[in-house]
Design a protein around this nucleic acid. Structure first.
Lengths: 337, 337
DNA sequence: ATGAAAGCGCTAACAA
DNA sequence: TTGTTAGCGCTTTCAT
């Protein structure tokens, strides 16, 4: 029950704690003989340095905080999967927080992470601003920060790992035009800059082919399946009928498909659907979903690398890393007509 | 850049550090006047207790370690989603580790968690034993442990949150018999007790209806999609043909379906498929998958509660919590014939 | 090459 | 009601 400590090791060997510490930190000024004796004892007792005490001394915890909106969204989990191996191999632990899409909880989590003295934070927020002050406070106290898929909080100087959202919209919409769709509606996301850029891409792509979308083609939705479902319900009553819809993300696209099926229509024959995000199993859906995706793992990996490089070596100036989106064509967008 | 500390607060107010500490810990022996002054200063400076120092003093980190085999498996993420709210609301942080199905890495993660002095560990391992010694060491040092979906390591005295695997096999197989299938094959999992129990359930259910499975009906597989795919390839050559297959988990079932389709056959018309685990989006698959599932969230929730109750109050004797499995009928098992 | 001593920021007896 | 003091286990000057 009693923890083994350096004191114990030192005592058992008749050396000082300092000596043990030095061995464990690979200091050069230790004779090979002593080093070996210490190492042997460490092995024998199964000793593990107390990271808490070490952190207090070093003022570094070798811990990264991760804040995501929703654990159940494969999307964010893939980001973590990108972070994990990088952190793990460099000896960093991951303190996981889920904000549940709630700005209040996100705030609480960020303060908790500050209290726990994490060396860095990866924030994959979905909330529109609100916690700018906590973020500023964090960075001011020396915690490095990287935001994923967020290009707001402009006052917060930190690394950002993003995709090109306007291009996302263009890729999706141009594809639908390419396969011969004429009336391409858009189910928008929440009022955040990324959703707006996707909508902008949709407009641009239409404009490039001289298509003028009537107002009813664009309906405000959200990032949840239920949002897409509701939005599609409304789009189904638009006349003349739409023959395609570009949803701001995959869950919304799935919701839209459900609404379409419920109305007795078919995907893609009656209405083609394209989403964004390339969620897991998207290729195994009843009607496999055409989507615009980008590598979440790369996003996570880059985030972790930016963070750790900044922590270990020189702290680079804030960078923006753009992960390019790509079109993933499946059945929901149909074949050329 | 300089952290605010209790010293600073105390200094600014002309009181002792102890007083500040007592206020922050809600000790009764502090006058309201002082309490208010301190709280005001804390607010003013945006002070946050340094959890590292606190942990060193208290010898509790208010942190739980979570070790799962694979972040990309929705299955484990749901467990975390069950743990998170319980831990979060009680002020516990979650240190996340992914062992990548590798006993060596799992071992390293567990030692890391020991070094970090976590108060408890939730282990959702998939590895067959091997790290028993580390687990024993952990518990011996006072770390409480709960294992999820693991009923091995019998020497390790800890809570366990399991499902009834034999019943899982019975539910799946009886269902296939109920819908009129005659030749029900089984794609087994890796050589762990749970997979074996599922197979046992399969045998029991067949026996209960006087069906004697020939040896070729049972093929050793694994828990990966590729395992199911390979196993099904072999099953496809069995004569007389099998008309149903019960796979030890959903990924294997999905792999099996792929093999069936590749062979030009149909699910469920030619071969019915049932999996285990009820993975996310299982109901949106090309052919929605019939499966036997149980609440992962409940599993996580129970695990967290067992752990935290043990930490906060009396430490219960090791308990085994059984989460009941239930059959989820979708299309892959077909309709009665 | 080794060790004594101070300190990281906090908690908790024990005094006052 | 408040403060003094001694740790928690480790790192790190600075002597020796």
């Amino acid at each position: 029950m009693h923890q083994t400590t350096m004191k114990r090791i030192a005592g058992a060997l008749g050396v000082s704690i300092t000596t043990v510490s030095k061995v464990l930190n690979n200091h050069a000024d230790i004779s090979d003989a002593t080093r070996l004796r210490v190492l042997a004892k460490v092995e024998e007792l199964g000793y593990q340095r107390n990271a808490v005490a070490r952190s207090l001394s070093l003022r570094r915890t070798h811990t990264l905080g991760i804040v995501i909106p929703d654990l159940m969204h494969s999307f964010f989990v893939e980001i973590i999967a990108g972070i994990e191996p990088v952190a793990s191999v460099r000896g960093y632990g991951l303190l996981l927080c889920s904000s549940g899409e709630d700005a209040g909880k996100e705030r609480a989590e960020l303060e908790m992470l500050r209290g726990r003295q994490v060396d860095g934070v990866v924030l994959a927020s979905a909330n529109a601003s609100g916690n700018t002050d906590v973020l500023l406070q964090l960075t001011r106290h020396g915690t490095s920060l990287v935001m994923i898929d967020r290009d707001d909080h402009p006052s917060v100087k930190c690394h950002r790992v993003l995709t090109d959202d306007e291009r996302v919209g263009v890729l999706a919409t141009a594809h639908l035009l390419d396969v011969g769709r004429k009336a391409i509606a858009h189910i928008g996301g929440p009022p955040i800059v990324h959703a707006k850029r996707r909508e902008k891409g949709w407009r641009e792509a239409l404009k490039a082919r001289a298509v003028k979308p009537p107002d009813e083609w664009s309906v405000r939705g959200g990032f949840m399946e239920s949002d897409g479902y509701r939005a599609m319900k409304r789009l189904l009553s638009v006349r003349p009928k739409v023959d395609a819809v570009f949803a701001a993300n995959d869950p919304a696209a799935i919701g839209a498909m459900k609404a379409i099926w419920e109305a007795g229509l078919r995907v893609p024959e009656d209405i083609a659907v394209v989403g964004v995000g390339d969620i897991a199993l998207g290729d195994l859906l009843r009607v496999p979903l055409t989507t615009v995706g980008w590598s979440r793992r790369d996003q996570g990996r880059h985030a972790a690398e930016l963070l750790l490089n900044g922590l270990e070596g020189e702290s680079d100036p804030p960078r923006r890393v753009i992960i390019p989106p790509r079109l993933i064509v499946r059945e929901s967008s149909g074949s050329p007509r």
